[in-house]
Nucleic acid binder design. Structure first.
Lengths: 369, 369
DNA sequence: TGTTCATGGAGAAACGTATCTCCGACCAAC
DNA sequence: GTTGGTCGGAGATACGTTTCTCCATGAACA
């Protein structure tokens, strides 16, 4: 009785708003089967003869039936959505380290997610709580989390898997992926020293993210080791103008460096422009390397040696680790597992001195492999 | 009776999985009020004394209560999610016209959405239907839809608002925003002609998107008008190497142009490199303009004049139009309303000849406003 | 003639919220 | 002493799925 009344009521309601999208009930009614059968047929579950399956599918197609993602999410607890945090600067979404890096990384993350049937939701890191809690997430990718990152802690408390790009400082994540920034910087400094550099300068940032911090520390440590006086300028990395000014300042110093490594993407062009202003020839008078994912440095005059952090590989790895965790495929580790990915130094003319130009130096192969 | 049994059953279930997140029922029980009251208190609805409201809020806070986004979406029919299509090339998400454009546009769109409490979901344009239908969208931003775009038609049939960046060809959208590509190209060609160009070449694409098509048509029309023989090379815009080759081809022609406009972002550096190979001085022997959002062209040698499509403004506008439609704020128009946004020509040295270098030309102000 | 078993499928209970309806209580005015 | 209105809040339903449980039916088998 109750059931019958209920059902009848529903039918009436459904009929009243027939202009809306068709639901699973409509499909069931049209196909003359039960809701269960429709669900099973469409999702490839249950035990059904093929003819029933195909008939249901055909009816669903005819009615233009689309399952309600919201209802499915509510029932299954899975939304198929992955959050991707971006740090914001001012009003605009922004990522600290460098923009090309983020773009590439996000691109790879997006396609990795799609390959496994997930979609990415772009969310601001430090901002409106209401937006965050308004979207049903299966997990989150956090880019370069801060120490004790409150957002990460919050997500973790909710039981959501969190994977970070950048080794997290004192906050609980399911897994993380990072470059070996320390080794990368050391490699570059050695490379420059081998090319004849005596006083290597650094263009770095004032922000406290892991990338900036580790890289700067590696530089300072190297300086101590080889007994060189540190020569660096730090500037707020999010401000493009400040970068040009800092590059200028670095080359205007009385103890001008004869080689510079710039931590951020635009540093290459900025340094090149500054060198031009001071009539310094690259690479004869000044060796140049910067960290960038942009390929404009292949066609500058001269082409500039860059360090690539391989953001695609990182984006892909991060997403796959996250989805593994979501789907309970996490292999064996019990603790937050980290992966360190290699970087790649793309050697171009700006960091190599021609043999015939070299003043006094031991002969060496023109470029490392 | 039935209700009591039901309620008891729920309580039992809830208690059994207490380890899961707290639900609205738990808050109601802990605060000694009904579910309705909790909902009303937290959402600022209903008629409740302030003390009840604050008490409920406090209890919810204490329990770490987060409303289930899925349930809310199911109930209200609103997810707070906006789809952002990206065209894909090969495996990677990609956007045809140019990457920096897309990045800036997406950035602006993201922040515009967040400002109004929405989040953006990145979805591939032409790919897996399953992913699309698996996420509850309130509306979609489509970038550069194709003619009779099947995805747009499908979304529209579902009753979802669709706003496109790029004037749609024969598919129904709620609104659209686009640049006046025709006028922009004409403006550039006139600018180059005024700077003394006699034979203006074009570097264009082989793809059929609106941007490429309109721009090329504008060029051809201009050529007809002024009686110039068209000089252009077309290449697949998604292939970065092909761009360099095409730039080289264009400058290697027997009827070499004395000015070139490149439709895509990397064309500037490619053309500059090609000019160097042929020992052409810019701007003395070759005037250069390209369409780009990248500011590396401010620091190249020489700096290159660029056309900016103002992607931020477009991203913001598109999202706001979409959300207006979602929230039923659509102002007055009944039909798909379009907005045409201006472009901006950023004049730099590559398209200006110094007065003393100009051979024979009427004197004119050094740079248009 | 029972007793299994597999097959094909139906019923109904959740999932967690928002909201519509309605109810008691209190107060004032007639 | 009844009516009418406001305040504060409870009950129950619906949103549209998935899935757990269970029931027929018929065939195979002893």
């Amino acid at each position: 009785m109750t059931a019958a009344a209920n059902h009848h009521g529903r039918r009436a309601t459904t009929r009243a708003r027939r202009l809306e999208r068709a639901g699973i009930r409509d499909v069931a009614a049209a196909a003359g089967v039960s809701i269960t059968t429709v669900s099973d047929a469409l999702n490839g579950k249950g035990r059904l003869p093929d003819e029933t399956r195909s008939k249901v599918r055909e009816v669903a197609e005819r009615l233009g039936y689309r399952p309600s993602a919201a209802a499915r999410t509510l029932r299954t607890g899975r939304s198929g959505l992955i959050g991707l945090t971006v740090t914001t600067y001012g009003q605009e979404p922004f990522t600290f380290t460098e923009f090309a890096y983020f773009a590439e990384m996000a691109r790879a993350a997006t396609s990795a997610a799609l390959n496994r049937g997930y979609a990415l939701v772009v969310l601001p890191a430090s901002s409106r709580h209401d937006v965050w809690s308004n979207v049903a997430l299966d997990g989150t990718v956090v880019i370069d989390p801060a120490d004790h990152d409150p957002m990460v802690v919050d997500l973790y408390r909710q039981g959501l898997p969190v994977v970070s790009d950048g080794k997290p400082g004192n906050c609980p994540v399911t897994a993380w992926v990072d470059n070996d920034h320390h080794a990368a910087v050391l490699g570059i400094l050695d490379h420059l020293a081998q090319a004849g550099a005596r006083r290597i300068g650094l263009l770095t940032g004032t922000s406290t993210d892991t990338y900036t911090r580790l890289s700067t520390e590696a530089y300072l440590g190297w300086c101590r080791n080889v007994g060189q006086q540190p020569l660096y300028e730090a500037y707020p990395a999010h401000d493009p103008c400040a970068g040009a000014v800092a590059a200028d300042r670095l080359l205007a110093r009385p103890d001008r460096p004869d080689a510079v490594y710039g931590l951020f993407d635009p540093n290459g062009t900025d340094l090149l422009a500054a060198a031009r202003r001071y009539s310094l020839r690259v690479p004869e008078d000044l060796l140049l390397v910067c960290c960038s994912e942009s390929d404009v440095y292949a066609t500058t005059e001269p082409p500039i040696t860059t360090l690539s952090l391989k953001p695609r590989r990182i984006g892909t790895t991060v997403v796959n680790l996250l989805i593994d965790a979501i789907e309970g495929l996490t292999p064996d580790t019990q603790d937050a597992s980290g992966q360190v990915m290699p970087t790649e130094l793309i050697v171009r003319r700006s960091s190599q001195r021609r043999a015939h130009r070299t003043t006094v130096a031991a002969p060496r192969p023109p470029g490392e492999t």
